[in-house]
Every structure is written in C-alpha cells, then in structure tokens.
Design a protein around this nucleic acid. Structure first.
Lengths: 196, 196
DNA sequence: GCTGTTTGGTTGAATGACCAACCATCTTGG
DNA sequence: CCAAGATGGTTGGTCATTCAACCAAACAGC
C-alpha cells in the first residue's frame, strides 16, 4: 500500500496548496486533506519542499495530457486548438494556474521550486515552438526574429493573461486571448522578409 | 522626524522583500534593514500586510516615473520607447519585478495584497491602451477586437516575459520583446477591417 | 497449522525554532 | 514638562521535523 499512500499525500498536497497557498498550507493541513497522520508525510518526503515539487508535477500532468492531441493535427488547426484549450482551462480549472503562480512567487527565492516551474514553462514553450515551426513552414513565412523568441512571446502572453485573470476575476481573458490570436494570425503571413 | 522613519521602514521593507521574499522576510529582518527597532514597525503599520502594501506602492513609483515621458511623444515613438523601457528595466533593475511576482503569489490568497497588484496592473494597462489608441488613430486601422483586449494581451506578454526572465535567468527576454514588437507593429497596419 | 519474529507502513505527541504583535519603558523635541 | 516617537524584551501561537511506539502482514522454523 506504499505507493497508494504516497499518491494520496501528493493529491492532498495539491488540493491544500491550491486552496490555501504555499504560505498557509501547513504539513498538518496537507495530512488532513490526504486523510493521513502528519508524521507519514515526512516518511515519504524528506522536506515540505520536496513534497511541493511533487505536487507541482502532479498538477502539470493534467495540462500536458490536454495538449497531447495537438501533436497529430494540421498546424493551423493545432494553433487554433491551442488557443481554445487555453481558454477552456483558464475558465474551467484555474486551480493549476493558481498553484503555478503561487510557486512562481516561491520559486523566486527557492531554487528547487524554481526548477519545477522552469521545466513546466519549457515544455509548454516547446509545444508552441513546434506548432509555430509547422505553421511558418506551411506559409513559407520568414520572420525577422528567431522562432524561439516568437514562441517565448506567445507563451509569455498566455502566462500574463492567466496572471491577470487570477488577480482580477473580472478580467476578460477570453477577449485578451482572441486579441492575441488575431495578432499572431495576422503576423504569420506578413512575416515574409524580402531577402531569400 | 515621523515621516522620515516611516519612509525608512518602507524602503527597508522593499529591500528585505526583494532579497528574501514575502515568506522569509520577518518584521525583524525588515527593521534591521531599515536600521530601526523591531517595535517601531508596528508603531507605523498595524500589520505586516499593511507594510507590504506600502512597499509595493513604493516599488512601483519608480516604474511609473520612467513611463511618464511617454505621454508627450508621438504615438509610434512612444510605442517603441515603451518596448525599450521595458527591456532596460528588466535587465537593469529586476527587483521591482521580483517584488511584484512575489506579491502575485501572495495575492492569490490575500485580497489586500491582490488589490495592490491589481492597481499596478491596471495603471500599466492604461498606458498601453493610451498609446495603442493614438497608434490606431494615426494608421486609421480597425482591429476586429476591442482595443482593451489588445492592450491586455500586450501587457500580458510583458508580464510573461518578466516571469520567464526571473525564473530562468538565461531566458532571452530581449529576443522575446523584439519578437513581440515585431508582431505588434506588423499587426497594426493590417488591422483594417473591410467594413466602414 | 501454529507460534515468534521481522519488516514496512503508520500514528500522534513532543521538540525546538521562529515569528507577529504587544507593551512597559525610555528619550527627545518643542 | 509632556506628548510623539522609539526601544527591545515578552507573549502566545504556529510550524516543520523527529521519534518512540504501534500495527498488520509476510515469513521462518517446527
């Protein structure tokens, strides 16, 4: 029953963290949420920090799964689907975003947590880069800046829209995502440099 | 000497918070940084929370000042200057960003802090909206989405680029900002809808 | 089949450190 | 001389982590 309990603790940590936040969620809270004795938490995880890293990864698993279907699509379709997925996740299950941005704050002063956030960012950026590469290839466009920079900017906008939505619940994240999509799709065909 | 001490405490809080983070910076740390007795902090601020709100506002004052000259410029010039300023601030004095994103994390579970962050976001978004309005006016463009959504998306990208830079010091924020600028400037002239 | 033992998992109380907020007490400028 | 300003020790509470004890299932020898 070992792995079972460990998973229960991680899931409990995830729930406790999203609802209470890093600062307020004590190990006791997490244990209670996982329906487990406080001591057991430290049987499986050396420190609270280690547990939080596991909780972040646990939370990100769902997001990655939602992004998987994009792989098989046509580039343009995948791009549109990406925007749609972001909209749905932001309105439907903001918990993961809540956790991530809580961890961004913690990560600013905590390398181990920063590493977990960083790898999530990287994997998201890679998905965008892949779609962007296919898209540019299709339209034979030649942007004046590196593709990596473009996808970093787009992913940045996703991040910023999420942050604004979380801080201001009235924020029109759908509108902002539509605006972003319009800008990106308008940019692609025009991004053809004279040279070559 | 009243205001003097209060200011010293706020400045000390700002320094302590950027270097240690919200979670680790104790009132005692702040007092030490401000070269003041621990008790004095609570003489001027009812709670630690109140002090932090003041520290955020203190930190944002500098940013707002840097943005002031944009007001008198030509729209296109102001837009370019805005991108340049963002680049400089991000590389030159990341402390404010550090504080802000630490507070985003805290604000997710703390309404008072969230309010301070929110008002900073709003004021930055307004600057972008103002420049965007002038720019669209000049080029007689008619975007298919609300101007507010466009500026929200652009500000979002600024946010996201800062976050990535803070979490991954190697992140090429200049490249991402260039890519963003290219997208935005490519978008403006094409944003002319057939109708009207 | 039965007993004694080992082992992996689990418990919750105890420990020691730390912190925000309070307050009794001084200091000083007006 | 008296507030307003400033001090730093005290208080009550919380927290991560540790630990000694407990349990149940697997297993050994007989």
């Amino acid at each position: 029953m070992s792995e079972d309990s460990k998973e229960k603790i991680v899931a409990g940590a995830y729930r406790a963290l999203t609802s209470l936040g890093y600062a307020s969620a004590s190990v006791k809270d997490i244990a209670a949420e996982a329906a487990v004795a406080p001591g057991l938490v430290h049987y499986y995880f050396e420190t609270k920090e280690d547990l939080l890293v596991a909780a972040i990864e646990y939370g990100c698993r769902g997001i990655s799964a939602d992004l998987l279907p994009l792989a098989g699509m046509d580039a343009l379709e995948a791009a549109r689907a990406g925007f749609r997925t972001e909209k749905e996740q932001l309105s439907g299950s903001p918990d993961v975003y809540r956790l991530i941005f809580d961890m961004v704050g913690v990560g600013l002063h905590n390398p181990k947590i920063a590493g977990a956030v960083k790898s999530h960012f990287e994997s998201r950026r890679q998905v965008i880069t892949a779609i962007g590469a296919a898209l540019l290839d299709q339209s034979r466009a030649r942007p004046g800046v590196a593709l990596e920079s473009i996808s970093a900017a787009i992913w940045a906008a996703f991040i910023g829209i999420s942050v604004q939505k979380l801080i201001e619940p009235d924020f029109d994240s759908d509108g902002a995502l539509d605006a972003l999509a319009e800008m990106v799709f308008a940019y692609i065909p025009t991004a053809t440099r004279e040279g070559v």
